[in-house]
Every structure is written in C-alpha cells, then in structure tokens.
Design a protein around this nucleic acid. Sequence first.
DNA 1: CGTCTGTTTGATCAACGTCAAGACCTGTGG
DNA 2: CCACAGGTCTTGACGTTGATCAAACAGACG
Lengths: 237, 237
Amino acid sequence: MKNATAKRLGHGAALNREDLARLDRFLHPVRRVPAGTDLIQRGETVSCVRLMISGLSARYKLLPDGRRSIMALLLPGDFCDLHVGVLGHMDHSVMTLAESEVVETSQSDIDGMMGAFPNIARGMRWIDMVDQSITREWLVSMGRRRADRQMAHFFCEIYHRMDMIDEVGSNSFALPMTQEELADTLGITPVHALRVLQSLRQSGMVQFQDGRISIPKLDSLETFAEFEGDYLHLGRS
Amino acid sequence: MKNATAKRLGHGAALNREDLARLDRFLHPVRRVPAGTDLIQRGETVSCVRLMISGLSARYKLLPDGRRSIMALLLPGDFCDLHVGVLGHMDHSVMTLAESEVVETSQSDIDGMMGAFPNIARGMRWIDMVDQSITREWLVSMGRRRADRQMAHFFCEIYHRMDMIDEVGSNSFALPMTQEELADTLGITPVHALRVLQSLRQSGMVQFQDGRISIPKLDSLETFAEFEGDYLHLGRS
DNA sequence: CGTCTGTTTGATCAACGTCAAGACCTGTGG
DNA sequence: CCACAGGTCTTGACGTTGATCAAACAGACG
C-alpha cells in the first residue's frame, strides 16, 4: 500500500525499493491543518516547501473588490511551492478547502533528495510539468468552453487525477468543496454554477452533493466535455 | 550590450563574467524562422530545447471545432520547452507569430550548463517560475476580468516584459500580432476584440496598429486594469 | 485585376451576471 | 427546548457582456 506521493511520483518515473524507503523517511512529520486555513499567503517570503499528503487545497488570488479566483487545486501528492524559493515572495495564496495533512520541509532537503535520488528527482519534475500543463488546460477551458462544458471538463480532470492516486471508488470520490469554491475555480458566479450543475445532474452525468461527486458514466461526460486527457500525461502516450 | 537571454536571466540571478561568456557560447547557432511556423507540434516527442532569441511566438491549442486558444506568449529570452523532456510528448503546440530567431540545443547541454553554472541555473529556474506565475495571472484575467480590463491588463504585462529586455522605447514597442491572435489569447472573438480595442483607443490609453503598440500613459492603463505587477517578480521586494 | 488576409461596422441573440429573497441546515447561547 | 445567527443551497426576474451572422472595406501580392 503506497502513499499518494509515491503513486504520483511513480507515474513520472519508475521508483525502486530505495527510492520508496527514502520517500517514507521524507514524509514525516505530518502536520494536520483544518479546512479554510491559509498554508501560504501572498506576499510572504517562502521559507519551506510543503507537500500535500491528504485533503484538498487551492491556489487562489483575491482581487481588489474582494472577488476570488482559484487557479489550481492541490490534491494529495502535489507540492505547494516547489522551487518558489527562487522567487522573492509568493504572488498568490494557498488555502485548505478541507482538512488536510501536509509535510513541511526545506528547499535544501528537497535539493539533497533530488541530487541523491534521480528517480525521485525525475518524478518531481514530472509532477511539476503536469501541473503546468493542467494550468494551461484550465486557460483553454476558461477562454473557449461554455460553462457547462467547462464544468464537465473540470470534473473529468479531477476524476483522472483522483484515480491516479487510487481515490476513486465505484465511480465516485470525495471532492469537499462548496459551489462557491467551484464557481471561483471556473470563473463564474455561484448562481450560475448551481444552474450548470443542475443541468449536468438532470442529464444524469454527474451527482455532486455533500462534498462528494459521482460520475456514473465517465464516457458520456468526457464526450460532452470534449475531454482529451493527453495533457495529464497518464497513458502509455 | 547584453542579449535578451542574459537580461532575463539577470533578473533572477546575478551573472558574472564567466556566466555571460558561457551564455555567449551557448547562443549559437541561431536558426531563423518565418512567421506562422510551428516550432513544436502537439503530440510530438520532444527532442531538443528551444530558446527564443528574437521575435514572438505563442503556445496554443486547437479545439475539435477549429477554434484556437493561445495560452502563452514567448518573448526573447523565453524557453519553448525547458524540462518538457520528462513528459513523453507535447500536449500543445508552439508557433511563431512573427519572424523569430531561436537556438536549438539538447536537454543534456542545458543540464550540463545548469550543473556547472549555478547562477545560470538559478536564472533559468526563475524564468520558469515567472512563466508559471504569468499563466496563473492569465487565469485570473480570463475568469474574473471583463474583456476591456483583461486586454488592458495584458498590455500592461507585455509592456513590463518587453521593458525587462529593453525593447520598449518612448512608451511603445513592437507587438506583431493580429487582432485575431489577440482575441485567441484573451479568449474572446475577433469582433469583440476589435470593439474593446476601439474603446481603449478612444480613451487614449492605447494605440495598437501595424504590429506596434503605444501606451502613452502606462499609469492610467494600470489603474484601469487594476494591474498589480508583483506576479512578474521584477521589483526589489 | 482578382484573391487573400486583416480590419471594420451593424443587427440580433445567447450566455452569464446581478439583485433579491427564501429554504435548509448546523451550531450556539439563553 | 427554543431563538437566533451564519453558511450553503436554491429559485426567479431582469440586465449586461460578449457571441454570432453578415457584409463591406483596405492593403499586399501575383
């Protein structure tokens, strides 16, 4: 039974027994963080690297008028701020959307591990690249997909990302976020998010209630969303 | 007289004489590419790393119905595909919007240089981080800013990025892209792009004609766009 | 002279936002 | 046990932004 981090890294590089052992030592101590807590705030100087072990977090920015934009979801195995040390300060904030577990370590620890364990280093670079790819796909969704397709596309993506770390069971998984948070990640209003959600519900493609989502027929949803999963770099290309 | 690459790297790390000398050797040979050429296509296996020397390129994706989404502009000093080697294939394409000069090299060359010249390595990581930051800010613009503010914000950003490599003269600079390409980067239609452009022209904040843009009063434009430049990580903050 | 690409304009329509209000649930204090 | 507050979800009426459709115009080029 591997942890989410090992599963994620394993998609980008083959890990051997020593890699896994090093990782296990790395994943301590775990800090438990309640929902709605800022892990890092905009403007802060970054002093350490954080890794999501469990739960759900989000990168976000607040605009002058108080509106919010969520620019990324951090799932177990994602890094909050890998490499941001080279920048002077954070240009955005990261908050937990649900109770989460994180590991905090130093950039030098990371660098040391990457130097000594090339497979892990390769896996981490892979995670980094995939995160960038996801951000670009979100741009496509925002710019060129209608809200219903965009939401469907978003759900497909999260399904695959959750599946990657074995968090999907019988076509459903925990997605502990509110409609408002969903709206902020799609760039729409909560009212519209609800209406789109209702139309997806009516068509029988999605259930989303009480922090849990169920996707009975992923195929239909992917077709509807015109989902092309290559940007997640999962397959045997 | 330093080149654009050195200027960009220099913002992220202090370069000494040897660093600059190594860079100079690195920047050969230069390949000249006409406008409208794909430097890399989606699905391709990445065999080399490309660096923009001059001109203008764009990361983009095409949707099944033929619409296009431009997810990033590559200015001189930007890397086309730094580190994408760890991914099996490109998930998007890169094309020149104007005649450009690029340097093509291998990932192992890059790795060698980064290993031997820590300042350069640091500068390259800085460029990478800033590019990610810019992508995130575009997400904010797409999701939460009206088209007029979004376009204004975009122009402010490009102004600063061009200024960083000393390409701005008397408040104007070359931006050789069409209205259609502009629309594809903002996620709107060409017709609407024109109308927004006209409103910005009328207010006297922007001139944009014949591949050149002029911003007489950057302050006004930044205020209008609610532009907060910290995400470009330029300042001495 | 015709074709092509890019720009411009107008009329109409759909997607999405705004405003306002109520329902439901949970936790809290009297 | 009840009253109340706060957060989330839900619904309806109406307004705005931006898309769509169609056409004309200008310059570059063979």
